[in-house]
C-alpha cells in the first residue's frame, strides 16, 4: 500500500515537472531563438528546418547592427531619460507619500482620493493634449519632453505611503524630539527604513521607462533623440535593409540591461509585484 502511494506521488511530481518544463520552454525558446539568430551567418538564417547553433559563430553581426543606426546615442538617450524619470518620480512620490502618511490636514483623505482617481485614467487618453502642451513649450525632441509628462507616479506614492504607515510612531516621535523637520524626517528616517520597497520601486520604474515605446515615439522625430526601443523599431522599417540576424542582435542591445537587472534581482522584483498588486 505504502509502496503504491510513493509511486503515485512520484508520478504526480514528474508530471508537475513535465508541465513546468513545457511552459518554461515555450516562454524561453523565443529568447534562445533570438540569441541563436543573432550569431548566425546569412546562409544559416535562411535555412529550413532552422539550425539552433551555427557552425561559425558570427559576433560581427553585433558590430554591423550597432553601425546601422546611432545605437550609442540611443543608449545615452535611454539612460538619461530613464534615470531622470526614475529619480524625479521617486522623489516626488516620496514627498507625497510622506504627506499622506504623516502630515495632519483636514482634507487629506479627499486629496488622497483625487490622487487615486488619476490612476484610473489611461495615459493613452492624454496623448494628444500632452503633445500639444509640449509643442507649446517647445519640448518636442527634448529629454524633458520624454521625461516630465510621466514623472508623477501614483502607484509609487501609494506603495511608499503604505510602507511609511508601517513604521512605528515612536521613530517619528524620536525624530521630532531630535528637532528634525518633516523633510529631514523623510530623508533620514522614513526612506532609509523603506529600503526594501524602495529598491523594488526603483528597479520597477527603471524597467518601465527603459521599455517605454509609445510616448518617446510620439515626442521624438529626430533620430538623435530616439530612445532604444524607438530606434530599434525604426531600423526594421524601410529606411534600412538589414537581415534578421542584425535585427535580433539589435534587440539584444535593448534587452541586455533589463535582463541582467532582472536576473540579479528577480526574487525581489517578482515578490514585490505580487505583494504590491495584491495590496494595491
Amino acid at each position: 500500500m505504502k509502496h503504491r502511494i510513493n509511486i503515485r506521488a512520484l508520478a504526480s511530481k514528474l508530471f508537475t515537472h513535465f508541465v513546468l518544463i513545457i511552459a518554461t520552454l515555450v516562454i524561453g525558446l523565443p529568447f534562445v531563438w533570438m540569441l541563436s539568430t543573432s550569431i548566425k551567418g546569412p546562409t544559416e538564417v535562411a535555412m529550413f528546418p532552422p539550425v539552433w547553433w551555427p557552425k561559425v559563430v558570427r559576433f560581427d553581426n553585433f558590430v554591423t547592427a550597432w553601425n546601422t543606426a546611432p545605437f550609442g546615442r540611443f543608449y545615452v538617450n535611454s539612460i538619461v531619460t530613464a534615470a531622470a524619470g526614475v529619480i524625479l518620480g521617486v522623489v516626488t512620490a516620496a514627498f507625497a507619500a510622506y504627506a499622506f502618511a504623516r502630515i495632519r490636514y483636514k482634507h487629506r483623505n479627499f486629496f488622497f482620493l483625487v490622487m487615486l482617481a488619476a490612476m484610473m485614467i489611461p495615459g493613452q487618453v492624454a496623448l494628444i493634449p500632452n503633445y500639444v502642451i509640449l509643442a507649446k513649450l517647445n519640448w518636442i525632441n527634448t529629454y524633458q519632453g520624454i521625461v516630465v509628462p510621466h514623472v508623477a507616479n501614483v502607484f509609487g506614492a501609494f506603495l511608499l505611503r503604505q510602507y511609511f504607515l508601517t513604521i512605528p510612531d515612536d521613530l517619528y516621535d524620536a525624530a521630532q524630539i531630535d528637532g528634525l523637520g518633516h523633510t529631514r524626517t523623510l530623508f533620514h528616517v522614513a526612506l532609509p527604513l523603506s529600503r526594501p520597497v524602495l529598491g523594488t520601486l526603483l528597479l520597477y520604474l527603471f524597467i518601465q521607462k527603459w521599455n517605454a515605446y509609445l510616448w518617446p515615439l510620439i515626442v521624438t522625430n529626430k533620430q538623435n533623440m530616439r530612445t532604444l526601443p524607438v530606434g530599434l523599431a525604426m531600423i526594421r522599417s524601410a529606411e534600412y535593409s538589414i537581415g534578421p540576424e542584425h535585427l535580433m542582435a539589435a534587440s539584444i542591445f535593448v534587452l541586455m540591461p533589463v535582463l541582467i537587472a532582472y536576473f540579479l534581482a528577480q526574487k525581489q522584483l517578482i515578490e514585490g509585484i505580487a505583494a504590491g498588486a495584491v495590496k494595491g
Binding site: T24, F31, T37, P229, F263
Partner: peptide
Amino acid sequence: GSNFYRAIIFSPTFTANVAIAMVWAWI
C-alpha cells in the same frame, strides 16, 4: 527548481515589447 521555472515564465513581463514583437515577427 520552482524558483527557476517561475523566473523564466515571468521574464517576458519585464521585456521590452518592441523586442518581443521583433522576435515574434521573425518567429
